[in-house]
């Protein structure tokens, strides 16, 4: 079995979700990692140091400055013939390009894999995680996206450096006539990324206003964490869309999750179930989130949150 992992990066650093995909790949066979980007030497070098990576393939060209699905799929498909499995993280990057690759190869894709049972059998959540399906396929190449929270990130190996092979692209600027990049509006933040923060403080509609979310940011900063939100809170404009946690937002698994003013719709709970410790602060004692919380405090957040913040600031 030989596995190709499509790396996700910003041309300088590797996304941690790729390291989780490498861990999944190691359970399947020999792991090669493909880095496509522009001036992305650093990315290739850091992946060559990752335990279990046998080889890093690099395609470096200015046409890969932005990650357009059409360009990436046309680049990746011709490289897949030697592989039994093609993997990427189930992030917005992987979800965008992998089905395009699978369809061009005329093979099915298994999305959001949470466990590898064998080389052709995989587990994945369905119905927002309310059921787990075990699926198998006999397709010649298995295309999988890997849920980051289900696999530990692969570690850097000591002293070992996998060979790095550069491949020239056969595509030019003119190859892709279908799509064109215009701009990105990134939410720059000093805080850790929601996907892999060890502490996440999340707010729901119960926070009532965008201003009240400031208290959650203060709490997150005190704990070195990130801030997340429910769909209702994002829809109400309390937080930007990239902070949405849940079935259609981000799936997180922090060491500590604190949900404030969140009732706990199944779509939101689907995104936090793998958290190590769940704390819920809600004034409604029947809120569904209390059923999954390790520690619940039935209280109005306005009365207890400032106190919690002060106590943490004072080092208790």
């Amino acid at each position: 079995m030989s596995v190709l992992v499509i790396a996700e990066h910003n041309h300088q650093t590797v996304n941690s979700a790729t390291l989780s995909a490498i861990t999944a790949a190691k359970q399947l066979g020999i792991v090669n990692v493909l880095v496509i980007g522009y001036h992305c030497e650093e990315v290739a070098l850091s992946l060559a140091k990752v335990e279990g990576v046998e080889q890093v393939l690099v395609i470096d060209n200015h046409i890969y400055q932005h990650f357009l699905a059409e360009t990436l799929a046309d680049t990746i498909v011709p490289l897949t013939s030697h592989y039994t499995h093609i993997l990427a993280a189930a992030s917005s990057f992987g979800k965008n390009i992998m089905p395009r690759i699978a369809a061009l190869l005329d093979v099915v894709q298994v999305s959001d894999v949470i466990a590898i049972e064998s080389t052709d059998t995989f587990k994945r959540p369905i119905y927002a995680g309310n059921a787990i399906a075990t699926l198998c396929t006999t397709d010649k190449i298995k295309v999988l996206t890997i849920r980051e929270t289900a696999f530990e990130p692969a570690m850097m190996a000591k002293g070992n450096l996998a060979p790095i092979h550069t491949i020239q692209t056969t595509l030019t600027e003119k190859t892709n006539q279908l799509s064109r990049f215009i701009e990105q509006q990134l939410c720059d933040s000093e805080r850790p990324e929601l996907n892999n923060a060890s502490v996440v403080v999340a707010g729901g509609r119960g926070m009532q206003t965008k201003e009240n979310f400031q208290l959650l940011y203060a709490l997150a900063d005190q704990l070195g964490g990130a801030v997340g939100a429910t769909r209702a809170a994002v829809d109400a404009g309390f937080a930007p869309n990239d902070q949405q946690i849940g079935q259609t937002g981000k799936i997180i698994a922090p060491r500590l999750y604190i949900g404030v003013g969140i009732s706990g719709a199944i779509q939101h709970l689907a995104g936090i179930m793998d958290s190590k410790v769940i704390v819920a602060i809600n004034k409604d004692e029947n809120a569904p989130i209390l059923e999954v919380a390790d520690y619940s405090l039935v209280a109005d957040w306005q009365e207890v949150l400032p106190d919690l913040l002060n106590r943490l600031k004072m080092g208790n």
């Binding site: 357009l68 992030s91 917005s92 990057f93 279908l178 799509s179 064109r180 990049f181 215009i182 701009e183 990105q184 509006q185 990134l186 939410c187 996907n195 930007p240 869309n241 990239d242 981000k250």
Partner: peptide, 11 residues
Amino acid sequence: EIDTGLEIISL
């Protein structure tokens, strides 16, 4: 809508 914010493309 992408993980890190928004991306605008033209098709």
